[in-house]
Simulated scan of single mutants.
Amino acid sequence: MLIIGELINTSRKAIREAVEKKDGQYIQQIAKAQEEAGATYIDVNCGTFMETEVETMEWLVENVLQATTLPLCIDSPNPLALEAGLKKAINGKSMINSITDETPRWNAILPLVKEYNTKIVALCIDDGGMPKTNEDRIRIADTIINKLTAEGVNIDDIYIDPLIKPISAGEQNGIEVLQAIQHIMESHPGVHTTCGLSNISYALPARKVLNRLFMVQTMARGMDSYIMDPTNKEMRAALLASQTLLGQDRFSRKFLKGFRQGLYE
Rank of each mutant, 00 (worst) to 15 (best):
100 T>N: 02
37 A>I: 08
245 L>K: 01
243 Q>C: 15
107 N>S: 09
237 A>Q: 05
35 E>K: 13
127 D>P: 05
13 K>C: 01
184 I>Q: 02
181 I>Y: 10
43 D>P: 01
1 M>Q: 05
256 L>F: 14
170 G>W: 05
131 P>L: 07
205 P>W: 06
237 A>I: 04
74 I>D: 06
90 I>W: 02
75 D>G: 04
10 T>R: 09
135 E>N: 12
14 A>R: 09
58 E>T: 12
160 I>E: 03
183 H>W: 10
67 A>V: 10
135 E>M: 11
72 L>K: 00
94 S>G: 10
196 G>H: 02
140 I>E: 07
19 V>F: 06
219 M>D: 02
239 L>I: 09
39 A>V: 07
190 G>E: 03
28 Q>N: 04
154 N>C: 12
140 I>N: 06
235 M>A: 15
127 D>Q: 08
250 R>A: 13
66 Q>I: 02
17 E>I: 07
239 L>G: 05
42 I>K: 01
93 K>T: 11
197 L>Y: 00
254 K>E: 14
173 N>T: 09
115 E>Y: 02
113 V>H: 03
68 T>V: 09
50 M>C: 06
124 C>E: 00
14 A>G: 00
121 V>G: 10
221 R>L: 12
76 S>C: 09
66 Q>W: 00
220 A>G: 07
17 E>W: 00
213 L>Q: 13
155 I>V: 15
265 E>T: 13
216 V>Q: 15
206 A>G: 03
133 T>K: 12
170 G>C: 08
58 E>R: 14
236 R>D: 01
69 T>C: 04
32 K>Q: 08
262 G>V: 07
191 V>L: 08
49 F>Q: 08
81 A>F: 06
40 T>H: 11
90 I>F: 06
146 N>S: 10
15 I>M: 14
69 T>Q: 12
38 G>F: 09
17 E>V: 07
102 E>Q: 14
134 N>K: 12
230 P>F: 03
219 M>N: 03
18 A>F: 10
150 A>K: 09
254 K>A: 15
252 S>P: 00
209 V>L: 15
261 Q>D: 14
16 R>E: 10
256 L>S: 04
182 Q>P: 00
37 A>S: 15
222 G>Q: 05
131 P>N: 07
71 P>C: 05
81 A>E: 08
31 A>P: 02
125 I>Q: 04
45 N>D: 14
105 R>P: 04
265 E>K: 15
102 E>I: 05
129 G>M: 08
168 S>Q: 06
215 M>Q: 08
128 G>A: 11
194 T>P: 01
9 N>C: 07
29 Q>G: 04
166 P>F: 05
42 I>Y: 01
54 V>C: 02
221 R>Y: 14
44 V>N: 03
59 W>Y: 14
114 K>G: 02
169 A>L: 14
11 S>N: 01
258 G>M: 05
93 K>G: 01
44 V>M: 08
214 F>C: 09
211 N>W: 00
142 D>K: 07
53 E>M: 07
251 F>W: 10
63 N>L: 08
88 K>H: 07
98 S>Y: 10
54 V>E: 13
74 I>K: 09
115 E>N: 08
176 E>I: 00
175 I>N: 11
27 I>M: 13
57 M>E: 10
